[in-house]
Simulated scan of single mutants.
Amino acid sequence: EDTLGAFAVLVSENDGVNPIVRTDVIGRHTIGSGASPQAVMTAIVTNPLDRVGISLKDIDRFAPELQNPEITVPAGAGNVPEANYKMIAALGVKRGDLERKELLSFVAEHGMPGYAPTQGHIPSGVPFLGAGRDMILEGSIKNFMLIGKGSLFLARLTNLFDGISIVVEKNPGLEAEQVGGVSADEVRRLIAEAMRELAQTLA
């Protein structure tokens, strides 16, 4: 594979339009989580959703390792994205979120083909961020989960896995910030008036 991959993401103040990052739905793989594929997916996918009462079906798209299978299958690594989706769906069946007959349809409806270069963390979810944002803004989906997992460097050093996930969802729009029953804009206006009055007394 003759590809050099890189990415950058700008996370800024809520503008009331662009999708928001749910900081209360963050999954992380800890040392005590276990290293089996099931344990990793439980820690970074289902556990954070359980904390806020969201089911697997409530997430429109999952973006795990998105390696291009045209590269990984001939190399003997298999179809990595599909394997991840099947693991998530299997967890859903085990938890009762899905029926067994829904497993393949869940993969088709909540997954996507892999298309990213395979180096390091580049394929782990982030390549979908731009497309996912556009899909939310156009209304075709309401949310998605980015899943970053697996580090060859860490695994070689410690025999441990690493992983993290975040949920990005449609922006509900800005509401007036309330400060003790008064909007933030009103507070700013009152401060400005007080400063003008002070300046007049000093003149």
Rank of each mutant, 00 (worst) to 15 (best):
T3P: 00
L4V: 06
F7T: 03
A8T: 09
V9W: 08
S12P: 01
S12I: 07
E13Y: 14
N18P: 00
T23I: 07
I26T: 05
T30F: 14
S33V: 03
G34T: 01
Q38W: 14
Q38I: 11
M41P: 00
N47A: 14
N47T: 10
D50K: 15
D60Q: 09
A63K: 03
I71C: 07
A83D: 01
Y85K: 02
I88R: 01
A89N: 03
G92V: 04
V93F: 09
V93A: 08
K94Q: 13
D97P: 01
L98D: 06
L98R: 01
E99G: 09
K101G: 10
K101C: 08
E102C: 03
E102Q: 13
V107P: 02
G111L: 03
M112I: 03
G114C: 05
G114K: 10
A116N: 04
A116F: 13
G120S: 12
L129I: 15
G130N: 12
A131G: 08
L137H: 07
K142I: 00
F144A: 00
I147V: 08
I147A: 02
G148Q: 13
G148D: 10
K149L: 13
F153I: 09
L154D: 12
A155E: 08
A155I: 11
L160P: 01
G163E: 01
I164P: 00
I164C: 14
I166T: 05
E169V: 00
K170F: 00
N171S: 06
P172V: 02
G173Y: 08
G180M: 06
G180D: 04
S183N: 07
I191G: 02
I191D: 04
M195T: 09
R196P: 01
T201L: 10
A203R: 15
